[in-house]
Nucleic acid binder design. Structure first.
Lengths: 101, 101
DNA sequence: CAGGATCCCTACGGATACTG
DNA sequence: CAGTATCCGTAGGGATCCTG
């Protein structure tokens, strides 16, 4: 009948600034904070926020290495990959309609 | 690689207040403005905005009858139905993951 | 009935500066 | 390097009042 809370939350995060881009980037493999920031033109504030949200939702894993200089790696979880595939399904849906016109 | 503009727009609208609810409600058949408002606890401002956005995206058709009192009916398009199905897929994805834990 | 216009409050996100 | 803290502008949405 209605949409589940989890789905709503994921939807909300996906609509935010840079959210899909981060997911697509991580879909190409694990990445570090600065890599993401450089490729996605996101302010550190926003990128950190997106990553934290994804982590809370269980879409992304964060691994910090105790080194100098510090290094942190972000990786998609299985759940994260599913959501990424899901986004591509949305594109297919909309594009197939586009062709019909 | 990245997400299409159309997909981004749809995503953005779907994350707004009451957006999924409106879609689910219309999935049960055509409805009038006041019906939707009563069932969904949305302010008229917000409901009108959602419906206009859906209309622009081609997810909803608006039919106004020149009567007194005026009557307007909203209906899902084929594209709208696909997006609704898509939302249910999202739930399935997240729930199946939930079970795994 | 089906909204538009207005006022107002809140949350998001950019820019910049600063730490562990 | 990988963030957090602060300041601040902009957009979303509630409440209320008004109209075709």
């Amino acid at each position: 009948m209605a949409l589940s809370k989890n789905a709503r939350k994921v939807l909300k995060v996906l609509a935010r600034r840079g959210a899909p881009e981060v997911l697509f980037a991580l879909g190409r493999g694990p990445a570090r904070f600065s890599d993401l920031q450089a490729h996605l033109h996101l302010s550190p504030r926003t990128l950190a926020e997106r990553l934290r949200e994804y982590h809370v939702l269980g879409l992304v894993v964060r691994r910090a290495f105790s080194e100098v200089p510090p290094r942190v790696e972000y990786t998609l979880t299985a759940r994260g990959k599913r959501v990424l595939d899901f986004l591509q399904v949305l594109e297919e849906i909309l594009d197939s309609e586009e062709v019909k016109r």
